[in-house]
Design a protein around this nucleic acid. Structure first.
Lengths: 109, 109
DNA sequence: AAGCTATATAACCATAGCGACATGTACACG
DNA sequence: CGTGTACATGTCGCTATGGTTATATAGCTT
């Protein structure tokens, strides 16, 4: 099994998800937009499927792929504790700038 | 150059960041806690450094590594549009459950 | 049933990533 | 100034991954 992080490491797979964010799409549609071979796209879709990031619906020969955002919560959860950190750093920077004297030439080069 | 996504695909690197979230640490400390060889850890640290996810401070022979959360904003930014999606889906589920009649036997098997 | 369409799978190749071991480098200390 | 400590870097082997080409599968269509 592959973690959500590894699945998203692939730029093409992120592109696919971005495309599916707009709407459900058949494979051929993705192939066109990604300028990638059909088997390559199918392979990525398989990985995404096994990670639960997409669902398929069969309609005659067409397979319509749809986004499933739920596994992205894992990302969200991991990221959460870091969010406060960059906020803190920004605050620190602001405080720093607030206490700076207004002589930009001073510390040059 | 390596994208933040690829950098975070490695479980060990996420572990390293998680450790650094608590406090600045020298390499040896990370080696102990990760049960990984020192060169392996150094290699991961190099990747993290080049991605701007950590900073080093030299103190005699020790190198103290510190977290830099800022590049994680890229993740955050990518994730943002998806966040509403899983919220929407939850809402849809809730609405669905609200309109369900209370006869759990009906749709069995 | 034959043939076309849409997609999946198989087989193969090239490359990259991660690990371990060995070695280089920088600093402290006696 | 040689030795130990703390870390980085080089090299190598293995495995995994992503791409391509060829082929299998499934469903219309006539």
């Amino acid at each position: 099994m592959v973690s959500t992080f590894e699945v998203l490491a692939e730029p093409r797979r992120r592109e696919i998800l971005d495309l599916l964010r707009a709407r459900e799409r058949p494979v051929g549609d993705l192939v066109e937009r990604l300028a990638l071979s059909q088997p390559a796209v199918s392979k990525h879709l398989r990985v995404l499927r096994e990670a639960g990031l997409v669902e398929v619906r069969t309609d005659a020969q067409r397979r319509w792929y749809r986004l499933r955002a739920e596994p992205l919560r894992e990302l969200e959860a991991w990221l959460a504790p870091y969010r406060r950190l960059w906020d803190e750093h920004l605050d620190a920077l602001e405080r720093h700038l607030d206490t700076m004297p207004d002589d930009p030439e001073e510390s040059g080069s």
